[in-house]
Nucleic acid binder design. Structure first.
Lengths: 194, 194
DNA sequence: ATTATCTATAGATCTATAGATAATGC
DNA sequence: ATTATCTATAGATCTATAGATAATGC
């Protein structure tokens, strides 16, 4: 399912560029301060607009966040069920090269568990989907029985948990935590095939 | 190392109680809104004080956060190197019974990766310590060689990552994620001894 | 006409300080 | 005296709306 160019007949190319600029700036500011701590003014300043000028492109702060989340190409370098297990290591390596995106994502994930957070539903659904996709990836690699007697469905949340958990440890202390190496260790642990 | 009663000669018992009440309220409000989203007024209201009344007990919002973090009994039902591996499963089970604390912790961890967050140093140091402690726990259980050819030091960040990562998945969707079960699965994966 | 921006501003908050008042502990 | 709490308030923000002005596209 390829999803369109985002600037259909109603919106000019120039406007599309502006939106993209704003989204990039929002991503940065959220990485630095989280969503609740990010002010529209800070995002606007980064693209040389006033806060009111920004609100012409996104009618509210929440609309801006939703747009950021939907532009999930950023994190949807993340796998679907077509992926192969041995590519996950490379994905983690790739993530280690873009701390900004990882930080935005991790800050939003952390905030999203608080009450009434506008990203909560997004993450809940996303994780359900990612667990399913990972189960399928594991099934392709191992069939129904994994080491330790696990099924793909039971191993999937662990795989996801390791990726997320390592991101926090790595963001807090990149010198001490070799994120890609640790993730490969986990794949090793998963068994001979990995 | 037992750490004292927190109300030495300088502070009355009544004051200690008030402080404890405030800390409990702060824990709740942070769970609901994160640290940046938590207002002193919201915490104060919960203990029947004005915001200014609260600031008599903690001179600033940051001082309140520091006090919350230092009262880490909450999360330091978390292991030191004396622990045994098979007790970790029970710890996760215990955590599954106190979603509030888990949520406070997870929200703070998420926020802490943003710039200039007052909990950042705390978490960085805490994780270094927890990794060390976990390595020692693994060493006691397995010696120097774990399944997959891992050393205790290399397995430790994975163990920690699984615990944290599962917490997020579980907070977002407790119906779909069996946190204690999944963690036991991971211990199973770690090998025969676990 | 529509789109992009701006200035002005309303209306909420938020943290923190100053200083008054009441209660408590020697 | 010290401790706990309150009222008043300064000084920053923040989001969002209203309405003016300039630029762009048919």
């Amino acid at each position: 399912m390829s999803y369109g160019d985002g600037m259909s007949s109603t919106r000019s190319a120039r406007s599309g560029e502006r939106r993209a600029e704003i989204l990039r700036a929002a991503l940065e500011v959220i990485a630095e301060r989280g969503y609740r701590g990010a002010s529209l003014a800070a995002v606007a300043e980064r693209v040389g607009l006033t806060q009111q000028g920004l609100l012409h492109h996104f009618p509210s702060k929440e609309a801006l966040l939703v747009a950021v989340l939907e532009e999930r190409d950023q994190w949807d370098a993340v796998p679907d069920s077509q992926w192969r297990l041995d590519l996950l290591g490379s994905l983690v390596e790739y993530n280690a090269m873009r701390p900004g995106i990882v930080q935005t994502f991790s800050a939003l994930l952390g905030e999203s568990v608080t009450e009434g957070h506008p990203a909560r539903a997004f993450f809940t659904e996303r994780y359900a989907g990612v667990r399913e996709a990972m189960a399928q990836v594991l099934r392709v690699e191992y069939g129904e029985r994994l080491p330790g007697g696990l099924t793909p469905e039971r191993a999937a949340p662990l795989l996801v948990a390791v990726m997320d958990g390592l991101q926090y440890q790595w963001l807090l202390d990149p010198e001490s935590v070799d994120m890609p190496g640790a993730f490969r260790d986990f794949l090793e642990l998963l068994g001979p095939e990995g």
